[in-house]
Structures are given as structure tokens and as C-alpha cells.
């Protein structure tokens, strides 16, 4: 019986010269077993830090507070040893940069086998055999040959698949993929997203897909949350988020997706300005300076999460009207 991941009041703060940076503030989130969740936000929105905090992978100057319950375990108060049991085995994570996630001087097959030996106690022969199976599962052709190659001999898409194989090796209940498609060609992107869908369907693994690209997430996520400046600003079923977003930022994001049926020569809709620098304290809604509907209230009062008739959550004083 798979466990749900229940996050309440998660805060992540980094100590830097000059003060503290609240990378994640007051996040409540449920990840239900077998669910496929999309997490969307720009660089600096806290989307990666949120999940790094859960797995105890924050940098030395970071601190997490709040509650993250995975079944019976409170992850934030686990020892490193206890976390090692969970990491890689029950929760798998694929980090952002494939080249630096793989050890350059070990063959990729050995890197997959290493995880199996550590978590499942397999011997070398068994681990290599299982690694081969995993390679086939993530659709790496010519698996026997690829197992013996080094990371630099593989293309970007291939490396990403190897990382997926490592993350899936111990059949985790939750798979977290952080920007798995950035820096990949559009055709390879499509393939990786396909693969994630398949994994989700076939093994019932919950999948969390983190990306700055709403288009990529929309392909497989049933539910999507939008992060801005470290806070969740909207949490809704993906279809509804795309057709009628409530939060102004989500609406702007949806509008800025390039559409092939836009007239040639038309301008791309953009959001003026850039995300706030989190070192300086923010009063009120973080999006207010860039929001076309902002009022005085927005600049002073942090909007609380409200729930609408459809069960959607959003934090906005002047949400876009529902259709």
C-alpha cells in the first residue's frame, strides 16, 4: 500500500552574506499515491528547493522547517541514515543537470548497479542483469553495449534516460523529475515525456514533473501547481488551469505559451519585469509589481489560499473570473 506525501507549512531558508533568503514559504501540498503532479515556476521560484528539502539535499547554508510526512515517517526529522533508506529506494529523484549527476569516470551500467547493490543488496551479476532490464525499460537501444559506455559518450537524451533508470531501479513510490527536458531537443523532449507517462501508467508510480515550461508539464500532469517567489499561487487540475486559470500569474504564463496557430509576425505575449530578488523582504503579494490588476491591497496584504467551487486553490486578491 503506497504512502502519500503530505507537506504542511514547509519553509526553506538560505543564509547568505546580507541576510536570509526565504526560498520556499508556507507550502502545503499533498502528493497522493499514483498521482501525476506538475510543478511549474521560473528560476528562483523555489520549485527545485522544495523537493531538495524533502529529500535532505539542501546546500549547507539551507534550513528546512515545517512538516513532511511520508506515510508514517516525518522526513524533516530523519537522520541521514534513515533518509538514505528513503532516498533512491522509496522516493527517486532525477536532478537538473544530467552531465553533473553522472560520475564521469564510471561506466553508466555500474552507476545503475551501484544503486541496486546499495538498496537491494544484490550481487554484481544480478545487479548488472537488472540494470540491463532497466535500460530496456527506459528505451535505451542496444542495452548491452550502452551499459559499458561512459557518460560523455552518450547524448543528452540518453543520459537523461540513464538517470531515469537509476531513479527507477528500486521501484520507488514517488519519482521526482526536475527539469528533465531542458537543454534537450524538442523531439527528444517529446520522447522523455512519453517515457514518464509510460512509467506512470504501467507501474503506478507517482510522478512529479518540475519545469519552467507549462507546455511540457501539461502533457502528462493531471494536476499542476504554480510557484512564484517561493509560494504556491495556484493548485488545480491541469486542464482547468490551462483553460481558465484563476491566479494572474498563471494566466500570464498560459498566455505566453507560443502557439503555432498564432499569426505569423505577431508578438509573443510576455510578462514585463522579472521575478523579485528574495533577499529583500517582500510585503504583500510577490507578483504585484508585475501584475496588471494589482491594487493597493495587493502591495500590503499577502493573499491567502482560497478554494473555489471546483475545488481549485489559488492565492490572489483579484483572481481572473471563472468562465
Amino acid at each position: 500500500m503506497a504512502d502519500a506525501l503530505v507537506i504542511r507549512g514547509l519553509e526553506v531558508r538560505f543564509t547568505v552574506p546580507g541576510g536570509e533568503v526565504p526560498a520556499v514559504s508556507n507550502v502545503d501540498l499533498d502528493i497522493r499515491p499514483g498521482e501525476c503532479l506538475g510543478v511549474v515556476g521560473e528560476s528562483g521560484s523555489g520549485k527545485s528547493q522544495l523537493f531538495l528539502a524533502i529529500l535532505g539535499l539542501l546546500a549547507a547554508n539551507g534550513r528546512a522547517a515545517g512538516s513532511v510526512r511520508f506515510g508514517e515517517i516525518e522526513l524533516l526529522s530523519c537522520t541521514t541514515r534513515e533518509l538514505n533508506e528513503v532516498r533512491g529506494s522509496r522516493i527517486g529523484m532525477v536532478l537538473q543537470d544530467p552531465m553533473s549527476s553522472l560520475t564521469p569516470h564510471h561506466r553508466v551500467g555500474d552507476q545503475v548497479a551501484e544503486v541496486l547493490k546499495f538498496h537491494r543488496g544484490l550481487d554484481d551479476a544480478a545487479a548488472q542483469a537488472r540494470a540491463r532490464q532497466l535500460f530496456e525499460r527506459v528505451r535505451i537501444g542496444d542495452a548491452s553495449r550502452r551499459l559499458r559506455q561512459y557518460p560523455h559518450e552518450l547524448s543528452g537524451g540518453m543520459r537523461q534516460r540513464v538517470l531515469l533508470a537509476i531513479a527507477l531501479a528500486c521501484e520507488p513510490q514517488i519519482l521526482i523529475a526536475d527539469e528533465p527536458t531542458s537543454a534537450l531537443d524538442v523531439t527528444v523532449q517529446a520522447d522523455i515525456v512519453d517515457l514518464l507517462c509510460e512509467v506512470h501508467r504501467e507501474s503506478g508510480t507517482a510522478v512529479v514533473l518540475i519545469s519552467h515550461d507549462l507546455g511540457v508539464v501539461a502533457d502528462i500532469a493531471q494536476r499542476t501547481i504554480v510557484l512564484y517567489a517561493g509560494r504556491v499561487v495556484e493548485d488545480a487540475r491541469t486542464r482547468e488551469l490551462l483553460s481558465s486559470p484563476r491566479h494572474r500569474y498563471s494566466a500570464a504564463l498560459v498566455r505566453s505559451i507560443p502557439r503555432l496557430d498564432d499569426a505569423v509576425g505577431s508578438e509573443l505575449a510576455t510578462i514585463t519585469g522579472q521575478p523579485p530578488d528574495l533577499v529583500t523582504a517582500i510585503t504583500g503579494c510577490a507578483f504585484a509589481p508585475r501584475c496588471t490588476a494589482a491594487t493597493v491591497e495587493c502591495a500590503h496584504v499577502v493573499p491567502a489560499m482560497s478554494r473555489d467551487a471546483h475545488g481549485r486553490l489559488f492565492a490572489c486578491h483579484h483572481p481572473v473570473n471563472a468562465q
Binding site: 528505451r139 524538442v186 517529446a190 520522447d191 502533457d219
Partner: peptide, 21 residues
């Protein structure tokens, strides 16, 4: 290439995967 461009507003098609596989 055109088919592979993700468009969140349309359901996923088959041509993309057949070629890119």
C-alpha cells in the same frame, strides 16, 4: 519537428512518437 512541439491545448498525437522513437 512540427508534430513534436508540445501544445498543451491539444491531446498528444502519434506521429511524434513514431518518428522520434
Amino acid at each position: 519537428l512540427l508534430a513534436a512541439i508540445p501544445d498543451p491545448f491539444k491531446p498528444r498525437g502519434d506521429l511524434r512518437t513514431a518518428v522520434t522513437r
